[in-house]
Design a protein around this nucleic acid. Structure first.
Lengths: 216, 216
DNA sequence: GTGACTGTTGAATCGAAATTCAACAAGGTC
DNA sequence: GACCTTGTTGAATTTCGATTCAACAGTCAC
């Protein structure tokens, strides 16, 4: 038998399992058994913790959103230069590729938001928080005199988040010529224009890959 | 009993019924019976015309997309002034409100595209066609000397479509302060900057409402 | 009008997933 | 180390939607 786990620990596991199951099978086509399988449990055990599967799915979406947002905040936490801050933020808003789990989950959410008020509210909150994030960066840059904002910061911030969102969808849908790198350039082309700054920040050097078998 | 209809007519009806059912219940949670209900038929009759429900749903999505695109093309068909053309196109890309059926269906599609390659291909095609549409308008304006494009027309066109898409999602998700009018303004703020044109085109006068009972 | 074809129904059947629940096992408590 | 509480299983049951199909009703050709 599976090792027993504490209530809190198991709920955490289940949320992760639900995330994986939803990404694989779709937010509203995922089966109880598929969540159970991801968790290495039986459907009965899942129901013991979440008598209504929808509650679990909602918590999983919530957790996914939170993780996505927190990750972005963390990435720019140490950066003081507004220009670098802006560029890194733009880069962090896009999926790495079509398999990117976090963004795929958000896209799932977007599709359901037209029908599901709770999901809609969740996404709206995320959008607004991201707008604030950008707005802060823009205002900071303006205060430092490195950005000359062509329109109010809120408008710019809204457009930046909108662009990220849309390119996220396109990348997840596997557009053949529109990958993360191209999307970043497109968004930057807007950002340059609207901030009056060339935003010339070199690409982060790719982290050296972890030890592999026989790197030639 | 329901009046019998010709094969072609019934298939058309069913596609419309499927569209309505999907908007109400979701692309991949819609039930055969819900489609049948929308069509005023029984599930057996639906299956008689479409032995596999998925084929019907796909055709319905296809039809929805086509309709959306054709409508946009038609709206700008008679306009020769590039400035008006651009502004009208931007206005026609957004949902009128959260209930807008065409856009809601497209959002549904976007959510499923991460898992469904066929839906993904459908959306990618639509995106590319819209980009071409904008690109043509931009080039036309540049040729006429009314637009001074800050970056290549393809980049602008991609960003414009991306902005429309993203604001479509936000509006459908009922963002409390971001409606069609605000979204148009946000997109225009970008378009002005990147074309170097004030894009000052008065709102279409709202069509006079059809005869009502006792207009005061 | 008669006959053949075609679209439609409604009831029967099938199947898959959710739900329930008695039994049981792991840990803690005293 | 007996006793509880709690997490988990697995099998039985229920639920619900898809599928099948025989019967029937329009419609058309002649």
């Amino acid at each position: 038998m599976k090792t027993r786990k504490s209530r809190a620990q198991r709920r955490q596991d289940l949320i992760e399992a639900a995330r994986r199951a939803m990404i694989q099978h779709g937010t509203d086509t995922v089966l109880l058994n598929q969540v159970a399988e991801q968790a290495g449990l039986t459907s009965g055990a899942v129901l013991y913790h979440y008598p209504d599967l929808r509650d679990l799915l909602l918590e999983a979406h919530h957790a996914g959103m939170e993780r996505f947002y927190e990750l972005r905040v963390k990435r720019i936490a140490g950066i003081s230069d507004p220009v670098r801050k802006l560029v890194v933020t733009i880069r962090s808003g896009l999926p790495t590729d079509a398999e990117d789990a976090d963004v795929r989950l958000l896209c799932e959410l977007g599709g359901a938001a037209g029908r599901n008020r709770v999901y809609a509210a969740l996404l709206t909150t995320l959008y607004d928080r991201q707008v604030s994030m950008y707005q802060t960066i823009l205002e900071l840059g303006a205060a430092h005199g490195v950005f000359t904002l062509a329109v109010p910061s809120e408008a710019i911030a809204r457009n930046l988040v909108a662009l990220e969102d849309a390119y996220g969808y396109r990348i997840v849908a596997r557009h053949p010529t529109l990958h993360a790198a191209e999307a970043v350039e497109l968004i930057l082309s807007y950002a340059r224009l609207v901030t009056g700054n060339p935003l010339d920040v070199p690409e982060e050097p790719a982290k050296p890959p972890r030890a592999r078998k026989a790197t030639a």
